[in-house]
Write a protein that binds this DNA or RNA. Structure first.
Length: 554
RNA sequence: GCGCCUGUAGCUCAGUUGGAUAGAGCAACGGACUUCUAAUCCGUAGGUCGCCCGUUCAAAUCGGGCCAGGCGUACCA
């Protein structure tokens, strides 16, 4: 439709230039249409008269009139054209247009719901990647859900997506983890009980549990072994146990991963070493004060960053350089990293890696998901993995349910701070908009159950019987679905889908409360069932995309 | 100090990429179940879009400057 309209208006504009209203070579800006928020302004509107007013040296309103007068033919489905305000051109469609649209949705719902943006290019999306040193907290949950829905969304529009979890199973924190377990192990067996716990150790109860389980398996076997031997073993045991807990938490959240990438493997296969050698040769890494530094200032970082400490130990950044090089070399058209916003200082470092390996800047997107502040009513809960003062994600999900938790995370833009009030979340079990949306779906299912019960013999649906403004409005809203999907995928903003679905549900609930779908008028009933079934198609598709269930009864 | 994010109704948030009279939900108040599910609907009330300049026919949206909050600013991960 927009294409035809563009043609009509463009024809008029070229006619105007030929008639000598203006002279010279004119290149017209692209004609942009938008859907007015008020239906009295029509189905589509364009601001072209404003944009061209200076070129034509005419007031916008006058120009709009001139343009309309010179249109030789509007598309068939245009009912009327109006000029409003100081120069908007408002276009009104014939109802027929919307009836055909509805038919298109129903004829091929699958194709309608999944617009193609890609022919199968590969995308890597890395998210959560929480260290295996403790259970996931609510902040991780937000990243998990946002990442998961982005992955689903990109898959839907045609990309081939790899969901990846980068596992930090190397380095100093693993040592601290092992040492924390060891201390609890000693304590439980009555050794060194007078020594205070590690300043920077992990203090959570789960550490005690791990120590206890080791005692259960092996008793005091390690009591007299040297620490250098026991600590690596304990970190390994602890990391494995915690990782399996993390996997459970993710499963509970309905988040799945395709690949678990071990940081440690980068050292074992010498990939880190090779990457550093290469960057050194290319002048990206230099030596100073006994340490190796990466020139991150080249991409605007405020200072260069250490890659290898003067002690010879690599920093976290070293393996991350290798990790990203590895991702670049795996041939993805696009790489998306989703991080908690507290890592934002790290963005320049990764950009430097991309630049050093000559990766175009727009290949890699780093999404910073803003922090979640956990509240109990008005009191804030501090979150620290080390001190274990956080509330585990699993606990929250068990309280409010997976559907509600996911919906809640998707109900705000990921780059805004999120206050998660546990008290409210519990209350929201009946107020949460997720139920509102699901309820619309359930109600429609119920209509069809009723239909079966009455065993009516309906004629084939005739969409042209849908004449009430609310019915047209619903079709208009439904017709936007593919566009919403595309925009959400392009801008990487899953929340748009959530808001859209609530809007669809709202229109449906209002309609349902005012009009009966099944009535004595069988022709009308058939047409309305046709409409309502399209609503169900879109809501179900959208909820599935968000990883939320579509109950048939509530 | 510097950098990133945020500031919209009492609360929690949207705002079609610069459009027309700024919208929802919750909370408050008043109404609607003999009906395909009332987890719903209808109505009332609620605003200096943090503040000030600027760009524009047009600014919540873009630019600059302030103010406030959060986060970051390690040879930690």
């Amino acid at each position: 439709m927009k294409k035809d309209l563009t043609k009509s208006i463009l024809d008029s504009l070229t006619a105007l230039t030929k008639n000598g209203v203006i002279s010279g070579d004119i290149s017209f800006p692209p004609i942009h249409f938008e859907i007015p928020k008020d239906t009295k302004f029509g189905d589509l509107a364009t601001n072209i008269a404003f944009l061209l007013a200076p070129t034509f040296k005419m007031p916008p309103r006058k120009l709009a009139e001139t343009i309309i007068q010179n249109v030789s033919a509007w598309p068939e489905d245009i009912e009327k054209v109006e000029i409003a305000g100081s120069g908007f051109i408002n276009l009104f469609f014939k109802p027929r247009f919307w009836h055909t649209t509805l038919k298109q949705i129903q004829d091929n719902p699958k194709e309608f719901c999944s617009p193609r943006l890609s022919k199968g290019e590969k995308i890597n999306i890395e998210f959560v990647s929480a260290n295996p040193t403790g259970p996931l907290h609510v902040g991780h949950g937000r990243c998990a859900v946002v990442g998961d829905v982005l992955a689903r969304l990109l898959e839907k529009v045609g990309y081939q997506v790899t969901r990846e979890y980068y596992l930090n199973d190397a380095g100093r924190q693993m040592e601290i983890l092992g040492r924390s377990v060891l201390l609890r192990y000693y304590q439980k067996l009555g050794k060194n009980t007078d020594i205070p716990f590690l300043e920077n150790g992990y203090q959570g109860e789960y550490i005690q549990d791990i120590a206890a389980s080791i005692i259960e398996d092996k008793g005091d076997l390690y009591l007299s072994s040297p620490e250098e031997e026991v600590i690596p073993l304990f970190s390994k045991i602890a990391a494995e146990k915690i990782l399996s807990q993390i996997k459970q938490d993710l499963a509970l959240t309905r988040v799945r991963f395709d690949r678990w990438f071990s940081e440690n493997s980068l050292y074992e296969t010498k990939v880190v070493e090779k990457a550093i050698t290469r960057l050194k040769a290319e002048g990206w890494i230099y030596e100073n004060e006994g340490a190796l530094w990466m020139k991150t200032t080249a991409v605007g970082d405020e200072k260069d960053r250490v890659v290898i400490r003067s002690s010879g130990e690599p920093t976290y950044y070293a393996s991350d350089i290798a990790y990203h090089q590895n991702k670049f070399e795996r041939g993805y058209a696009r790489i998306i990293d989703i991080w908690g916003a507290d890592h934002h200082g790290y963005v320049d470092r990764i950009k430097a890696v991309a630049k050093a390996f000559s990766i175009p800047e727009d290949t890699i997107s780093i999404l910073l998901v803003q922090l979640v502040r956990l509240l109990h009513g008005k009191t804030q809960i501090n979150m620290s993995t080390r001190k274990a003062t956080f509330t585990p994600l699993a606990e929250v999900i068990k309280e409010v349910g997976t559907d509600a938790a996911r919906f809640f995370f998707l109900l705000r833009r990921y780059d805004t701070h999120l206050d998660f009030d546990l008290d409210l979340a519990k209350k929201q079990s009946s107020e949460n908009p997720v139920y509102y949306t699901q309820y619309a779906h359930a109600r429609i299912c119920s209509i069809f159950r009723e239909l079966e019960k009455q065993s009516l013999c309906l004629p084939p649906p005739d969409p042209s019987l849908l004449k009430i403004p609310q019915e047209i409005q619903i079709i208009q809203k439904l017709s936007l679905y593919p566009q919403i999907i595309s925009e959400a995928a392009q801008s990487l903003e899953p929340h748009r889908i959530t808001f859209y679905l609530i809007e669809v549900a709202t229109l449906f609930h209002k309609y349902y409360n005012h009009y009966r779908v099944i009535s004595d008028d069988l022709d009308l009933s058939a047409a309305r069932l046709y409409l309502v079934s399209a609503v169900r198609t879109v809501i179900a598709d959208g909820l599935q995309l968000l990883g939320i269930s579509t109950p048939e009864k509530m």
